[in-house]
Protein backbone atom coordinates (compact mmCIF):
# COMPACT_ATOMS: atom_id res chain seq x y z
CA UNK A 1 0.00 0.00 0.00
CA UNK A 2 1.37 3.38 -0.97
CA UNK A 3 1.09 6.19 1.54
CA UNK A 4 -0.22 9.57 0.52
CA UNK A 5 1.27 12.18 2.82
CA UNK A 6 0.72 15.89 3.37
CA UNK A 7 3.82 17.77 4.57
CA UNK A 8 3.12 21.11 6.24
CA UNK A 9 5.98 23.53 6.88
CA UNK A 10 6.62 27.14 5.91
CA UNK A 11 10.01 26.23 4.45
CA UNK A 12 10.00 24.35 1.14
CA UNK A 13 13.51 23.17 2.00
CA UNK A 14 12.37 21.63 5.27
CA UNK A 15 9.48 19.93 3.47
CA UNK A 16 12.09 18.52 1.11
CA UNK A 17 14.20 17.33 4.04
CA UNK A 18 11.27 15.54 5.65
CA UNK A 19 10.25 13.98 2.32
CA UNK A 20 13.83 12.75 1.86
CA UNK A 21 13.86 11.29 5.37
CA UNK A 22 10.61 9.45 4.62
CA UNK A 23 12.10 8.01 1.44
CA UNK A 24 15.38 7.08 3.15
CA UNK A 25 13.35 5.29 5.80
CA UNK A 26 11.99 3.03 3.07
CA UNK A 27 8.35 4.05 3.42
CA UNK A 28 6.23 3.22 0.35
CA UNK A 29 5.36 6.77 -0.57
CA UNK A 30 2.60 7.56 -3.03
CA UNK A 31 1.64 11.20 -3.46
CA UNK A 32 3.57 13.66 -1.31
CA UNK A 33 1.54 16.85 -1.05
CA UNK A 34 2.89 20.03 0.46
CA UNK A 35 1.48 23.08 2.20
CA UNK A 36 3.20 26.16 3.61
CA UNK A 37 0.98 26.58 6.67
CA UNK A 38 -2.14 25.25 8.36
CA UNK A 39 -4.54 27.25 6.21
CA UNK A 40 -2.96 25.95 3.00
CA UNK A 41 -3.12 22.42 4.42
CA UNK A 42 -6.88 22.75 5.00
CA UNK A 43 -7.26 23.97 1.40
CA UNK A 44 -5.33 20.95 0.11
CA UNK A 45 -7.53 18.61 2.15
CA UNK A 46 -10.65 19.95 0.46
CA UNK A 47 -9.65 18.23 -2.76
CA UNK A 48 -7.08 15.55 -1.82
CA UNK A 49 -7.19 12.55 0.48
CA UNK A 50 -4.11 11.68 2.49
CA UNK A 51 -3.18 8.89 4.89
CA UNK A 52 -0.99 10.96 7.23
CA UNK A 53 -0.17 14.60 7.88
CA UNK A 54 3.34 15.58 9.02
CA UNK A 55 3.35 19.14 10.31
CA UNK A 56 5.59 21.72 11.94
CA UNK A 57 4.23 23.86 14.78
CA UNK A 58 5.56 27.36 14.14
CA UNK A 59 4.18 28.69 10.86
CA UNK A 60 2.76 32.00 9.73
CA UNK A 61 -0.97 32.53 9.13
CA UNK A 62 -2.05 29.27 10.79
CA UNK A 63 0.28 27.27 13.04
CA UNK A 64 0.37 23.51 13.44
CA UNK A 65 -1.64 23.30 16.66
CA UNK A 66 -4.44 25.43 15.18
CA UNK A 67 -4.43 23.18 12.12
CA UNK A 68 -4.84 20.11 14.35
CA UNK A 69 -7.70 21.79 16.25
CA UNK A 70 -9.48 22.42 12.93
CA UNK A 71 -8.95 18.81 11.89
CA UNK A 72 -10.22 17.40 15.16
CA UNK A 73 -13.33 19.58 14.96
CA UNK A 74 -14.17 18.28 11.46
CA UNK A 75 -15.87 14.86 11.38
CA UNK A 76 -14.11 14.09 8.07
CA UNK A 77 -10.64 14.51 9.60
CA UNK A 78 -11.08 13.89 13.30
CA UNK A 79 -9.27 10.54 13.07
CA UNK A 80 -6.69 11.54 10.45
CA UNK A 81 -3.23 10.68 11.85
CA UNK A 82 -1.05 13.73 12.48
CA UNK A 83 2.66 13.63 13.25
CA UNK A 84 4.27 16.78 14.61
CA UNK A 85 7.91 17.41 13.66
CA UNK A 86 9.45 20.35 15.45
CA UNK A 87 12.54 21.77 17.12
CA UNK A 88 10.20 22.85 19.90
CA UNK A 89 10.88 20.59 22.88
CA UNK A 90 8.94 22.26 25.69
CA UNK A 91 6.93 19.80 27.78
CA UNK A 92 3.88 22.08 27.78
CA UNK A 93 3.83 22.37 24.00
CA UNK A 94 4.24 18.62 23.58
CA UNK A 95 1.47 17.96 26.12
CA UNK A 96 -0.78 20.44 24.27
CA UNK A 97 -0.16 18.62 20.99
CA UNK A 98 -0.80 15.24 22.59
CA UNK A 99 -4.07 16.47 24.10
CA UNK A 100 -5.17 17.30 20.56
CA UNK A 101 -4.74 13.65 19.67
CA UNK A 102 -1.57 13.60 17.60
CA UNK A 103 -0.09 10.23 16.72
CA UNK A 104 3.53 11.15 17.40
CA UNK A 105 5.75 14.09 18.27
CA UNK A 106 9.16 13.98 16.63
CA UNK A 107 11.73 16.42 17.87
CA UNK A 108 14.51 17.45 15.49
CA UNK A 109 17.10 16.13 14.98
CA UNK A 110 15.52 12.81 14.04
CA UNK A 111 16.70 9.72 12.23
CA UNK A 112 14.79 8.40 9.20
CA UNK A 113 13.98 5.27 11.22
CA UNK A 114 12.22 7.42 13.80
CA UNK A 115 10.02 8.94 11.09
CA UNK A 116 9.20 5.47 9.83
CA UNK A 117 8.35 4.31 13.34
CA UNK A 118 6.13 7.36 13.84
CA UNK A 119 4.29 6.81 10.55
CA UNK A 120 3.79 3.11 11.25
CA UNK A 121 2.56 3.91 14.72
CA UNK A 122 0.18 6.51 13.31
CA UNK A 123 -1.25 4.05 10.82
CA UNK A 124 -1.58 1.46 13.56
CA UNK A 125 -3.80 3.85 15.43
CA UNK A 126 -5.99 4.18 12.34
CA UNK A 127 -6.40 0.45 11.90
CA UNK A 128 -7.21 -0.28 15.53
Amino acid sequence: MELDILLVDDSATVRGLVARALRLAGLPLGTVLQAGNGAEALEVLKTQEVDVIVTDIHMPEMDGLTLIRHLRADPSFKDLPVIVVSTEGGAERIAEARELGISAYLRKPFKPEQVKEAVNSALGVVHE
Binding site: S11, T13, V14, L17, T87, E88, G89, R107, K108, P109
Partner: peptide, 12 residues
Protein backbone atom coordinates in the same frame (compact mmCIF):
# COMPACT_ATOMS: atom_id res chain seq x y z
CA UNK B 1 18.69 24.57 4.63
CA UNK B 2 21.47 26.27 6.59
CA UNK B 3 18.89 28.29 8.55
CA UNK B 4 17.14 25.05 9.45
CA UNK B 5 20.45 23.54 10.51
CA UNK B 6 21.23 26.34 12.99
CA UNK B 7 17.62 26.22 14.15
CA UNK B 8 17.91 22.53 15.01
CA UNK B 9 21.36 22.95 16.61
CA UNK B 10 20.22 25.84 18.80
CA UNK B 11 16.90 24.14 19.54
CA UNK B 12 18.58 21.03 20.81
Amino acid sequence: GIAELVNIIAGQ
